[in-house]
Structures are given as structure tokens and as C-alpha cells.
């Protein structure tokens, strides 16, 4: 009967070879690309699902009422008052800049 050490020594000398390395690597790479394609498809499906949900949500919202409210809000804004206020603010800011430049010139 062979000893443990003899069997281990004999096994160490055995060389195992993959039957067809080219075919094996090709097959593994095919499985990898297949897996990646599956992941990509899943991602696309998820995006489509989210878009569909978003679209259906938009369609379910009462758009007519919303647009009426929006129009009412826009028409309530005092455009002339807003423009006057903007003009005064920019004028004052310009005067301030000019004034500060004068002071700098005086000190120089």
C-alpha cells in the first residue's frame, strides 16, 4: 500500500490540460458578452419603465386646470411695475459704481 507522501508526490507530477484552450476561452468570452448584453437590456428596460411611469403620471394630472391657474398667475404679474423697479435698481447700482470710482480717483 502506498504511503500518503508517495501518493502526494505522484500527484504533484501529474499535469492536467484543458481539452481545447481556444474553444474554452472563446466560450467564456461569449458568456461574458452575453451577460453584459443582458445587463444592458435590463438597464434599458428600467429606463423605459421609468419614462412610461413619468408619462402616465403627466397624463393623469389635470393639465387643463393647471394651465388656467398658470395663466391667471402670469397675467396677475405687474410687468410695468417690475420693469420700473428693475430700471431704478440698475440706475442706482450704476451711480454707486461711478461714485466709488470717483472716490478712488480722489485718493490716487
Amino acid at each position: 500500500m502506498k504511503s500518503f507522501e508517495d501518493i502526494i508526490a505522484a500527484e504533484k507530477g501529474v499535469v492536467y490540460q484543458q481539452a481545447n484552450k481556444d474553444l474554452f476561452s472563446f466560450y467564456v468570452l461569449t458568456l461574458i458578452s452575453q451577460e453584459r448584453a443582458l445587463q444592458r437590456t435590463k438597464k434599458k428596460l428600467a429606463i423605459v419603465l421609468v419614462l412610461l411611469l413619468a408619462c402616465s403620471l403627466v397624463l393623469m394630472v389635470p393639465i387643463g386646470q393647471l394651465s388656467i391657474k398658470l395663466t391667471a398667475y402670469v397675467s396677475s404679474i405687474d410687468v410695468m411695475g417690475f420693469l420700473q423697479l428693475a430700471l431704478i435698481s440698475y440706475g442706482l447700482a450704476g451711480l454707486g459704481v461711478l461714485f466709488s470710482q470717483r472716490i478712488v480717483d480722489l485718493f490716487d
Binding site: 500527484e11 501529474v14 499535469v15 492536467y16 490540460q17 484543458q18 484552450k21 481556444d22 474554452f24 476561452s25 472563446f26 467564456v28 468570452l29 461574458i32 458578452s33
Partner: peptide, 22 residues
């Protein structure tokens, strides 16, 4: 470059197969 992984597979195919056989 997936084909580079193919080179790695070929390089270690026998080693891994031997380990699995054992």
C-alpha cells in the same frame, strides 16, 4: 479590450483546470 482577457484565460486555463480536477 475583452480579447486581452482571452489571453489571460488561455494562460491560466490549465492551472485552474488542474486545481479543479484535484
Amino acid at each position: 479590450g475583452d480579447h486581452y482577457y482571452g489571453i489571460l484565460i488561455q494562460r491560466y486555463a490549465d492551472y485552474v483546470f488542474g486545481l479543479c480536477m484535484r
